[in-house]
Design a protein around this nucleic acid. Structure first.
Lengths: 123, 123
DNA sequence: CGGCATCCTTTCCGATACTG
DNA sequence: CAGTATCGGAAAGGATGCCG
């Protein structure tokens, strides 16, 4: 069955697709695998300052479960594990690229910055 | 000072830029303002099924604070408020478009789905 | 109609400790 | 090296009620 993508039906798919990109570190991780790059677990720890092992492992495993990232284990004495994008994960590259370009533009754009405000528990 | 964008320095900017897109509904909202579309508060409530007024208002206000979305109030008796992308918000369109295309592709790609698993606090 | 305030539950996420 | 397990705090998010 061929699906017709109106802006509306697409919105549902987008919501769905977006779920696998949500999470504080998912995109960051993806960016480090961007152009075919391969990274080891410890590489991420060095590259992404501030991430905990827990989050790294968790996000990595979710990306893996979503089929975006491939995990390759080398059965060595000091364990070695590599991560790379799957073919399906690579289909994200154009979007990643666009996002990257936008982020760069951002620098030249005089925009305001917002700081934390959610539940207005300020009284 | 001209900034040189190596993949590494760019990563910092990306992290920074990404922050204003984080949130369960931010992208969804942006998608509904995609090609110059203008939406009222109540439109979003209809378009984005499952969102609460709280989240809608909060995300909208953050997008506004980040300068991505413009809010226009009509001083009528039944209040009327419109939301649209700012010029700066429109610079996101290419990225939004790429993401949209990716989400559509997704449909034709046989990939697995993952469900909730985070802290194994299941006792 | 278009919110804001409050309460409460769920989920996220960081720190720490332990393992093959 | 590459994780897993557990705890506890913080933040996100939902439900409800009220207001201009």
């Amino acid at each position: 069955m061929r699906k017709i993508y109106t802006p509306d039906t697409a919105a549902s798919d987008v919501e769905d697709a977006l779920k696998m990109l949500e999470g504080r570190w998912k995109l960051i991780i993806l960016f480090h695998l961007f152009d075919g790059k391969v990274q080891r677990y410890s590489d991420f720890e060095k590259l992404i300052s501030g991430i905990s092992q827990k989050m790294l492992a968790q996000q990595l495993r979710q990306l893996e479960a979503d089929g975006l990232v491939a995990r390759k284990v080398y059965p060595l004495v000091p364990p070695k594990v590599e991560y790379r994008l799957t073919p399906w994960g690579q289909t994200l590259c154009p979007a990643l690229d666009a996002l990257l370009k936008w982020a760069e533009q951002k620098d030249g754009f005089g925009n305001s910055v917002r700081q934390g405000d959610q539940d207005g528990a300020t009284t």
